[in-house]
Design a protein around this nucleic acid. Structure first.
Length: 456
RNA sequence: GGCGACGUGGCGGAGUGGCUACGCAGCGGCCUGCAAAGCCGUCUACACCGGUUCGAUUCCGGUCGUCGCCUCCA
């Protein structure tokens, strides 16, 4: 178990992970609002925190990874109304789609995936605590958090309360004592087809409170790592942090870890912009998976550092696919078993890179160096270290052999080509090779004779 | 305007006060009947201007440019 540090948004520094209980870590990553299929940008935190969990587990930690689903929200109501379906129906349908889409990443599931609608008791009681302690107040069936009553407000996002926009024109502003206050509970509106009982009447939770409640109920407070996209720092995480600290007198989390945005080349411009539904430039996860495959997509993500923005494009994915091919190619000549001791420093460098702010590009450096050495080696090389490294990155399947059955016609073409080669009829041999390629098989002549591989 | 971050070789992308990142692409070579794969070599990188320093891509200041947040957003 080595010392692991991560960039913490609160302090702005790379800080050492110091668990409440040695050897145990809780991770909470904010998941999607389910009003549509998730896109590649939504997938980034899922991938990053799934892999971070893998790394911590590898280092001997017992990890509880929680990724929530927001299934009550204005957008869900709006979308459902527009489509003439019940909001609960839309939410459960899209939750199922989210599960299926992320399942296709083949990274396993988080340990808990709580739904806001199934955490109502905890949400209501957390709001009650805030009302009792004077940090929140009821107004017309709504409940608001009193931002100015919490002096630390702004510490996470490094904002000064007095310098913030006053949120003019925001719906419900007339019910607030201060424009900065945000809703913990929203009274039921006639246009909404779901509502829950509360001490303040029928209604539903505000966005931020659900995460505080879900995180606390599954991980407790002051847990190790709270993550999500950098666009959530304000107001979402700022508010979560304020609510929990105000209600419980303890911080919500020890480290606040945020991933950079996925960008898309902007039409007709040199620069890029964030992938977002509101911009209309999304590439849905399931489309990306079928277009490029999960291996290339995972490689694409780990080729960049989690905190930096990444540009999603066909060129980038093609590069990732090429990198995948290089590793898989090397794997073909490895043998099961322990790796040479002299490769050990690469394994160490790999793990060290991840221990220092989860630097996956730097870790990949060791992977590729390992691959080059193995390719250069004369005898058979044991695959254990490479398998271990790839496993942490969710790419262990690159070492699995292509299981595809070679169809008889391809075998016949291969044999025919061998006969042509034996007869030194090169034009015919090359013609047969082209024919094979057309049927999806690539011939590779090696010391042990020809080999057929699925054409790439 | 406020807050945060970034500008590295053809492209992507790490990193460091002085020494080969790595991947992709290109070029030359080895291997091969030719390929493919692999290996070797190669392509004089750190936005600009000042400052600190024996020495800065790396530290400090400024300029220009880019991105994110400040409203729902992973």
């Amino acid at each position: 178990m080595r010392t692991i540090s991560l960039h913490d948004t609160l302090t702005g520094e790379v800080r050492v992970l110091e668990p409440r209980e040695p050897g145990k870590a809780g991770i909470y990553a904010c998941g999607p609002t389910v009003y549509g299929r998730i896109h590649v940008g939504n997938a980034r935190p899922f991938v990053i925190f799934s892999l971070l969990k893998r790394f911590l587990v590898h280092e001997g930690y017992i990890v509880t990874f929680v990724a929530n689903v927001t299934d009550v929200n204005d957008k869900i109501y709006d979308k459902a109304r527009g489509e003439g379906v019940l909001s609960a129906e839309l939410a459960s349908e899209m939750t199922a789609a989210y599960m299926a889409d992320t399942e296709a990443l083949e990274l396993g599931r988080p340990d808990h995936e709580p739904l806001a609608t199934e955490t109502m008791g905890e949400i209501v009681s957390l709001i009650e605590s805030l009302v009792e302690s004077g940090h929140a107040y009821e107004s017309g069936g709504d409940v608001y958090f009193s931002v100015r009553g919490y002096p630390e407000y702004g510490e996470l996002s490094h904002r000064n309360v007095d310098a913030m926009d006053q949120g003019e024109g925001v719906e419900g502003a007339e019910l607030k004592r201060d424009p900065l206050d945000f809703a913990l509970w929203k009274a039921h509106k006639p246009t909404e087809d779901t509502a829950w009982d509360s001490p303040w009447g029928a209604g539903r939770p505000g966005w931020h409170i659900e995460c505080s409640a879900m995180a606390e109920s599954l991980l407790g407070v002051d847990f190790e790592i709270h993550g999500g996209g950098s666009d959530l720092i304000f107001p979402h995480h700022e508010n979560e942090a304020a609510q929990t600290r105000a209600a419980r007198g303890a911080p919500l989390a020890r480290l606040w870890v945020h991933n950079g945005m996925v960008r898309v080349p902007a039409a007709g411009a040199a620069a890029e912009e964030k992938m977002a539904k509101s911009v209309g430039n999304v590439f849905l996860l399931h489309e990306a998976l079928s277009a490029f495959g999960r291996d290339a997509l995972i490689m694409f993500f780990v080729q960049g550092h989690y905190r930096q923005p990444v540009v999603f494009s066909e060129e980038r994915l093609a590069e990732a696919a090429a990198a995948v091919r290089r590793v898989r190619e090397a794997g073909r000549s490895l043998v099961p078993g322990p790796s040479p001791a002299e490769y050990g420093s690469l394994r160490d460098a790999f793990l060290e890179a991840l221990a220092r702010d989860f630097n996956t590009p730097r870790a990949l450096e060791a992977v590729f160096e390992w691959v080059r050495r193995a390719n250069r080696a004369d005898g058979p090389v044991g695959d254990a270290d490479l398998r271990e490294m790839l496993g942490v990155l969710g790419l262990e399947n690159l070492l699995e052999a292509d299981a595809a059955e070679i169809p008889a016609p391809a075998l016949e073409l291969r044999d025919a080509r061998e006969r042509a080669r034996a007869a030194r009829d090169w034009p015919e041999a090359d013609r047969l090779r082209d024919e094979l390629r057309a049927t999806g098989w690539e011939v590779r002549d090696g010391p042990d004779g020809p080999e057929l591989l699925p054409a790439r």
